[in-house]
């Protein structure tokens, strides 16, 4: 191949959730920044072990929800009271009461759009290519193995030292993924 391959990340395989939890704690305490844990199922307490703060997606949901409520209310006000007023059932031309169900649905709709798009934005999705999938072992992350991945771009990364750390943590298989 013409291109030269550069190290992308170190991939360490663990066999039990307890092991990977222990490893995640140690990696966090060692001060790594660009790293992640991949498991076949959610592990309770992993967020704490990795030191992950609460997600910021909620702000996107909130803004979406408030936008939806405002749009719903003002749309119905504009249509029923301002643009084309018709009395229906002896009710007032506008009341937040009858406008509520539609506004509420719009609140939920736009809040979920906010959540989805906010999540994609924060996770930099869609992402069509990740070198990690070059590793054949990594396929077992969706089956029965637990992985800690430390990226080479991490300021603390060192091909030798980091590998030693992961070995000490009890990983039987450590692989350097190149890209």
């Amino acid at each position: 191949m013409a291109e030269t391959l550069k190290p992308y990340a170190l991939l360490a395989e663990f066999e039990t959730p307890a092991d990977v939890m222990q490893a995640a704690r140690a990696v966090r305490i060692a001060g790594f920044r660009r790293w992640d844990v991949h498991t076949p199922f959610p592990i309770h307490g992993m967020d704490g072990a990795m030191g992950i703060k609460n997600s910021k997606v909620g702000y996107f949901s909130f803004v979406g929800g408030v936008t939806g409520l405002t749009i719903g209310m003002s749309m119905i006000w504009f249509m029923n009271k301002y643009d084309y007023p018709i009395i229906v059932g002896g009710k007032p031309l506008f009341s937040p009461l009858f406008a509520f169900p539609v506004s509420y649905e719009l609140t939920i709709l736009l809040a979920s759009f906010g959540t989805l798009l906010g999540m994609c934005f924060l996770n930099r999705l869609p992402k069509l290519y990740n070198p990690i999938f070059k590793s054949e072992r990594f396929a077992r992350a969706s089956d029965d193995r637990f992985f800690v991945v430390i990226e080479a771009s991490d300021p603390k990364f060192s091909a030798v030292e980091t590998r030693k750390l992961l070995e000490n943590l009890g990983s039987k298989n450590i692989e350097l993924v190149e890209d």
Binding site: R25, A26, I29, G45, D47, N168
Partner: peptide, 18 residues
């Protein structure tokens, strides 16, 4: 046993071996 990490401090003592 199924609880979240109590807090970061108690984790430090557990990971202190490294």
């Amino acid at each position: 046993t199924w609880h979240e990490e109590p807090d970061a401090d108690s984790v430090t003592t557990q990971g202190g071996a490294h």
